[in-house]
Design a protein around this nucleic acid. Structure first.
Length: 371
DNA sequence: AACTAGAGCAACCGCCAGAGG
DNA sequence: ACCTCTGGCGGTTGCTCTAGT
């Protein structure tokens, strides 16, 4: 028959661990290392289930764990990763040194979900609520400009209402959220504005980058694409990603107009009140700066194939860097680079390692990833 | 001071894939 | 081949603390 049960669950202690128990477990693991967890409680003199010991060790006692609060960079990273791969906490935690899946999961559930909701962003799809509504065809009858901006909040009746604060156009729009999928799902419309022209060029370049990138990093892009498109097409295939026209959805003129404002930085948004007047002013300035500098930004995106991996990294760098595709960084570029450089380089490192792995194990390229 | 609601977090639950007998 | 267990994972629960009334 099979193995004996790891413990008698009816006779093991449960609940909060005491300091003495922690000390015993710590002493044992420090001396013998982690091995068969079913043997650990017996050898360590603990009246606990092995599973409970493993959990206590991995979530609390491990010496490499951080026990301080999450940094803004980690916060941004979690959001971006969640947008890219969903609630795969163990994966996300592996990209956050010193954090456990439980830490990340708790932080998401207690703070980040609420934060996103307050910002008018659906924490599941990472899309503005307005876009979700429009996806369901409920927004077409609503008038003009407010509908662009995802500033829908739940009222006391638990229904979404637009924020009453007048919008100046681009102000406070958290459109960097889901930049990748916004580009896929919110292609530029048919107006003749500078913004639209700008974005058309960007989307075209993004399409080019995207196609090349599929050749370079299919596994990576598949993962991102399948996740980002989960709300509307949860089972998007590689074929859909690589060959389907980018202009998948008919979008309203209003939504087309806002695309250039995909100049958004999580750190800025999360750390500041998005509706404060100071931030509004700053964001307006950013937007104007973007528009003024856009013509010089676009050519930098039109690199050859050697650029594409990096460009894809930028585009799918699930965050501040992704905004670069949107014809922007703005006047705060230097500041942002300084503040997020460690995270960006970290992501670049991860992606670089991924590329190396792909090169070393080309058979992985043929593997299907069904999330 | 007492009560309540919400936040934060540690721990448990249940499922799954893989491994051992 | 089959059964059972382990280890790992994501989801959920429940306890503790704190702020508000």
């Amino acid at each position: 028959m099979g193995r004996p049960p790891c413990c008698d669950k009816s006779n093991v202690k449960r609940g909060i661990w005491t300091a003495a128990e922690d000390a015993k477990l710590l002493a044992y693991v420090s001396k013998h290392g982690v091995g068969n967890w079913t043997l650990v409680p017996k050898k360590a003199g603990l009246n606990r289930c092995g599973k409970s010991c493993r959990l206590r060790w991995t979530n609390y006692l491990r010496p490499d764990l951080k026990h301080d609060s999450f940094t803004p960079q980690e916060e941004e990273h979690i959001i971006n990763l969640h947008e890219a791969i969903g609630s795969r906490w163990s994966l996300i935690a592996k990209l956050l040194p010193g954090r456990t899946d439980n830490d990340v999961k708790n932080y998401w559930n207690t703070k980040l979900k609420k934060k996103l909701s307050k910002m008018g962003i659906d924490p599941v799809t990472h899309k503005p609520f307005s876009q979700i509504l429009s996806d369901y065809g409920n927004i077409s009858s609503l008038p003009s400009i407010d509908n662009q901006f995802g500033f829908f909040f739940k009222n006391s009746n638990n229904t979404f209402v637009p924020k009453s604060e007048p919008s100046s156009g681009i102000t406070g729009l958290p459109l960097g959220v889901n930049t990748y999928s916004n580009m896929m799902m919110n292609p530029i419309g048919s107006d003749n504005s500078t913004a639209s022209t700008l974005s058309l060029g960007i989307v075209a370049q993004f399409q080019e980058i995207n196609q090349d990138s599929v050749q370079v990093q299919p596994h990576f892009l598949n993962e991102v694409a399948s996740s980002c498109s989960s709300s509307s097409s949860p089972h998007a295939t590689d074929h859909q990603l690589s060959s389907q026209p980018i202009f998948l959805c008919q979008q309203s003129l209003h939504e087309a107009q806002i695309t250039p404002s995909s100049s958004f930085n999580w750190s800025e948004f999360l750390l500041h009140d998005p509706f404060s007047s100071a931030d509004k002013l700053k964001q307006e300035q950013d937007f104007h700066g973007t528009m003024m500098s856009s013509s010089s930004v676009i050519p930098t995106l039109a690199g050859g194939s050697e650029l594409n991996l990096n460009a894809t990294t930028r585009a799918c760098d699930f965050g501040s860097s992704a905004i670069n595709i949107g014809g922007q960084r703005n006047n705060n570029l230097a500041h942002d680079q300084a503040s997020s450089s460690s995270m960006t380089s970290f992501v670049d490192t991860i992606l670089g390692q991924d590329s190396e792995m792909q090169a070393a194990f080309p058979e992985l390229l043929d593997a299907s990833f069904d999330y």
